[in-house]
């Protein structure tokens, strides 16, 4: 990815991320977060993680943020009124964040392996295809894509997910089922439960 595009998307991501914190209206915060996540998805694409980028847009910018907006609409929340600000909390919070960023900068300044630019770690698709042929060529579609010189990102994610990570995938499925049941139990109205048990 050319450097100007990288800085453009980082600026979009961080600028709208700061807007989430600074804007007082929760609806503006939610919409800023959607744009921030779109910039983040562009950074994923710049790192050849096409599937993760699409997932970020579909799940976060799509489903999760629509859920947030739906809840904000349901509660009919007005703009936050200005209250007396707790100075100790503000100063402490800002110091925590600045301390974290300074520490991160200090660590990364001494991190030699991180100085490698992206074009110094190229993807070697032909070698990867050869290696796959050498171990029996289990998914010919992926090998054919690699030999054509394209990175079949989604197919590789699917292959890893359904071979090496199939147990974890089933566990996440159970987790989502439990979360769905839990949401229904939590959001059921209390008074109906009481009248039901009274019969």
């Amino acid at each position: 990815m050319p450097q100007p595009l990288f800085y453009l998307f980082v600026a979009v991501m961080l600028g709208f991320g700061a807007a989430v914190v600074l804007l007082r209206n929760p609806v503006s915060s939610a919409l800023s977060l959607v744009v921030s996540f779109a910039g983040l998805a562009a950074l994923y694409v710049s790192l050849n993680a096409y599937f993760a980028g699409v997932l970020q847009v579909l799940v976060y910018a799509g489903a999760v943020m629509v859920l947030f907006l739906f809840i904000i609409m349901l509660m009919d929340i007005r703009e936050e009124q200005r209250r007396k600000i707790n100075k100790v909390a503000v100063v402490g919070g800002a110091a925590l964040v600045v301390g974290f960023v300074v520490q991160l900068g200090g660590v990364l300044a001494g991190y030699e392996a991180g100085r490698k630019p992206l074009d110094r770690v190229p993807l070697q698709l032909a070698e990867a295809a050869e290696a796959r042929r050498a171990v029996g060529n289990v998914s010919p579609g992926i090998t054919a894509d690699l030999e054509r010189g394209t990175l079949p990102d989604t197919k590789l994610v699917g292959e890893a997910l359904f071979t090496r990570y199939h147990l974890q995938l089933q566990m996440v499925g159970v987790l989502l089922l439990v979360a769905t049941v839990g949401v229904i139990v939590i959001s059921r109205r209390e008074d109906r439960v009481v009248s039901g048990s009274g019969e």
Partner: peptide, 14 residues
Amino acid sequence: MVTLNDYLIASGLL
């Protein structure tokens, strides 16, 4: 070119 540290700093700032 963009380096790994650039991405890590962007991630840390977010």
